[in-house]
Design a protein around this nucleic acid. Sequence first.
DNA 1: TTTCTTAGCGTATTTTTTACGCTAAGTTTG
DNA 2: CAAACTTAGCGTAAAAAATACGCTAAGAAA
Lengths: 238, 238
Amino acid sequence: MQTNHSVSVDCVVFGFDGRSLKCLLIKRDGQDLKLPGSLITDQEDIPTAAYRVLAEMTGLRDIFLKELSVFSDPARVGDKDLEWINHFYGVQTTRVVTVAYYALVKLDNKIMSHTREKEAFWKEVVSITSLAMDHKDILNKALAMLSRDMTHSPIAFELLPRKFTIRELADLYKAVLGVEIDNRNFRKKIIGCGYILATDEKEKGVAHKPAAYYIFDKHRYKREEKKTRKLNFINWNE
Amino acid sequence: MQTNHSVSVDCVVFGFDGRSLKCLLIKRDGQDLKLPGSLITDQEDIPTAAYRVLAEMTGLRDIFLKELSVFSDPARVGDKDLEWINHFYGVQTTRVVTVAYYALVKLDNKIMSHTREKEAFWKEVVSITSLAMDHKDILNKALAMLSRDMTHSPIAFELLPRKFTIRELADLYKAVLGVEIDNRNFRKKIIGCGYILATDEKEKGVAHKPAAYYIFDKHRYKREEKKTRKLNFINWNE
DNA sequence: TTTCTTAGCGTATTTTTTACGCTAAGTTTG
DNA sequence: CAAACTTAGCGTAAAAAATACGCTAAGAAA
């Protein structure tokens, strides 16, 4: 029935630098680009393997991570790639089924220097034309799921610094969803939700009226979430 | 790194009989209950394996199917279960990673007689207390995803006959989401969406005013979907 | 014939979304 | 140093969507 299969994990790690959405890539053998990933070991489950990969690449333990889907085309890993895998991991695999995840990180100095050390780099998502194996498919699916998730749950804050301006938040939505946003109505919605709170700090050195910094109050969100209980529950176009 | 792993697929097959949500279960060795599933073969990818399992159990090829997630706890399959799997499939596996799917089917006579033949049966979801291995966890996750998906996309119709009354649709939502529904406002929403069309057939032999049968027009839905382009895009409580 | 149940239409109220005017607070430019 | 420019941030009015709920209609059952 089955010969020699392996299971791997691949992570689409997203970051936002204030202008555009980036994705963490590594260069295998100094050649083709791929997503960070690894075969799983005997003792670990797959989320653990994903966190292991992320910790190694970013130095962080506490990262937003979500399963995307499984990629299992028997031909998804070509002979050359298979050779590389068998050599690199010291195994004798004929097929690799991979479980893809997407992760969200805040692009601060710490993570930037860590990824630089690992010879990984951040590439603007829109400029990524091809990747090794089926990794481009994985990236596309991750983008679709990120768009969907960003409209249905407050995960944008995983990509922003702890303190952010409302403009930065809007810019993130514009970059990921490709929508136009009316500054004034967006503001109203954000302030009105009750769990995005103004701090007393302001931007400095910007060529316009400085904006206040806000923070996302996770606990307040959880409380609101319980209250909400929408009965207006059907929304088939989402 | 890796010894002898296998990949399997497990399907949570949901059906609705007009009263409550049911799930297809099979009895292994006449003993404990489990979800229908199978190891994958060398040549097939995982969705193909899932469709193979579904075709065998239900006799149907055209079924709504969606990936749920991967279950990969190294200890998820106990020694006894492993023994059974190795014996049944003629393999020498030490670990089985499973990819769970959920499927939606219309409970008509055809499928009922087919599942009866296969010695599978439909059990009311709320009455399922325990299943083999981690299959109860899989079922729970499937239920959560079904609830979510039913509010965001028109998949309810995969569980209903082609012609259905608005009451039947409402009953389905009540059963799955556990919500109260105002008949009159629900009706308005359904009729108003533009892609649920009245036929000229009516219920017969019911002890009240007979309701008209409606059909879901998939093509019209797709067209509406493209038009919609919601800018009211943020809804974090869903 | 009355009662019971659900179908199905309508209307008024409230809530949410959208469109958009306007002033404020900074920097940059001439 | 004033004018121009940019984004912040408040407000208001109109439009659209969701909700609450009254009412009649059509059948079977009592």
